[in-house]
Design a protein around this nucleic acid. Structure first.
Lengths: 339, 339
DNA sequence: ATGAAAGCGCTAACAC
DNA sequence: GTGTTAGCGCTTTCAT
């Protein structure tokens, strides 16, 4: 007894009407008599009729689904962003299809092809830390396919973008360390070609210079896999520790890097902040429970998801090709633990 | 210049063939000459042809997508489970549509209706802590709609189920506390009607009794929202602390509850484990970085997702109605911090 | 006010 | 070996 959903045809036959009449009645067309509408609506309800979204998609050439690509769901920042995305998308009747790149370029390309083949109407993406080649994205974009970048932006591609003021966030965090008296501040960051890396490192450097300190290349460590691979972070931290004049503080530019540094410092038995101060970007809600109370830059992740989705739906539902694009910059917050 | 994906028709016209010939050639049917196949395949490649999944879905009456409902994505256990789900589903060509109930019964029902209306082929669900009424699930299940329960199981509904040995996990955790000399062990747990609650509380009680200790109702606190609402946990902890003979240890039965207890104890300025020992279920990867090194029960979340998905796809792809159902029980692991 | 028919992209039963 | 046709569920001209 396999279930078969009721169709327009079922209603039409039962009522001795044509499918087109039923269709029109269901959509409350003005050219259908009130009596017929009433009849159809009642029967539809009794059959628990629901239009088949697949048939609709085929007809209308859109699926009312959007794709999301992030590096990892299991990352507070992204899971919070996804909550924001879902809240807006679902409210507007869109399904969200989430995929992960796991910071791999190949996985990102494959995933993108997959999403495209599932005929999504638009894409929200925060590119992987390994993404330098942009052909996969440019190809889609050139066809007029709606894309919105969030968090990790691609400057080259003209479309809507949403991010936090990364420069300011990094500047504030570094300033905070400086105000506490730290002077040799290292920076552990992501791939050099990511927008967030450039912007955050620039903020870090600006803060140092504001205090008349020359940024030293030896104190800036790039992690190509963005902390996805712990050894990468551990190595960076260990190199810093072993410097003749070792730094007295580390500024980490992402969630995974911040916790990665904590792990590495713990393993190396360096106390925080005694042996080394630590500050970094993080949206983890466990921050306050960590063994060292660290100051973090918190991003409005939920809001970022909402804004990005609103912009994407705007793109998708626009009648005419959109030519003017926005870059929305949100503010981050410096979370200082109570002493 | 809006992009229009190539269709079989395009290929057929370009090559002067019929659509059915092209369709057959593409599917490598034996009744098509090698020459024609070659021709079609090449042209398809040059047009970057990809079959339209929506048209396929309409034809085959399945969408090759599965729905997942969990309480919260932003929860290590569930995000890891989802990774397992995606790994299997994507490999088999299925899309995963994730939805969250946020521990709300209404949201779960709405979400389920929504997924059903998006014509998913099957459902993986860990019910919300507020779910007592099962009509929404039973209705679907009676139609023969494929459902697999994981983590939070519904005993009443006959289908495949995947979970950890909750009794054993709770037993081990409680035993661990007993072996360390704690005697008045409290338990902070989820809604009483969840399977995981019943099983974990039973394991806790069994361990106590094994040590000749009478379980005391006053020491078992149920949190209806599963820790989604922090005050709920804080209240429970505060009540325990204020008891004339206050407990010396707490066993928390879920991720959110474990970290919730830590928060509450911290706020109440009770040291862990000095003032109160704490053990609980948790899949957070930040456990080792917490201010108190606590022992946790870790579930094989990724594997649980994989197994659940395999079982679901088995159900979906089975030719004949499946009558025999499996309940797969995985083993958890007790993670004891190094001293 | 209602119906017939075409078409969205694809497959498959049925010709030839 | 290849073409014709019908049909999946729905909307939408175009008739009547």
């Amino acid at each position: 007894m396999k279930y078969r959903a009721a169709t327009i045809k079922d209603i039409a036959q039962a009522l001795g009407l044509s499918t087109s009449t039923v269709s029109r009645a269901l959509r409350d067309s003005h050219e259908i008599s009130a009596a017929t509408k009433q009849l159809v609506l009642e029967h539809a309800a009794s059959l628990n009729y629901h239009p088949n979204p697949i048939a609709l998609s085929l007809k209308e050439k859109k699926s009312r689904s959007i794709g999301v690509i992030v590096s990892e769901i299991a990352n507070s920042f992204f899971s919070q962003t996804i909550n924001g995305i879902e809240s807006v998308a679902n409210e507007k009747g869109y399904t969200v299809i989430i995929s992960q790149s796991h910071e791999s370029f190949e996985k990102e390309v494959r995933t993108l092809q997959y999403l495209a083949s599932r005929s999504i109407d638009g894409l929200l993406i925060s590119v992987s830390s390994a993404t330098k080649d942009l052909t996969h994205l440019k190809a889609l974009h050139q066809y007029g396919f709606p894309i919105v970048f969030f968090d990790r932006i691609i400057e080259d591609i003209a479309t809507h973008k949403v991010m936090v003021d990364n420069f300011q966030g990094a500047y504030n965090a570094t300033m905070h360390l400086l105000q506490q008296g730290y002077r040799r501040i290292a920076c552990i960051t992501n791939s050099a070609h990511l927008s967030i890396t450039r912007e955050r490192v620039a903020g870090y450097i600006a803060a140092l210079e504001k205090h008349g300190i020359h940024p030293q290349p030896a104190l800036i460590k790039y992690c190509f896999h963005g902390g996805m691979l712990l050894p990468e972070v551990t190595d960076a931290v260990n190199q810093l520790i072993k410097l003749k004049t070792k730094p007295d503080a580390i500024f980490a530019t992402s969630d995974k890097l911040t916790t990665g540094c904590m792990r590495a410092l713990k393993k190396a038995k360096v106390a925080i902040p005694g042996g080394m101060a630590l500050t970094g970007f993080s949206n983890s809600d466990l921050i306050e429970l960590l063994h060292a109370p660290i100051t973090v830059v918190r991003q409005p992740a939920f809001e970022m998801g909402q804004v990005a989705t609103e912009l994407l739906l705007q793109l998708i539902e626009s009648k005419r090709p959109v030519k003017e694009f926005e870059t929305r910059v949100l503010q981050s917050e410096l979370l200082i633990p109570p002493r």
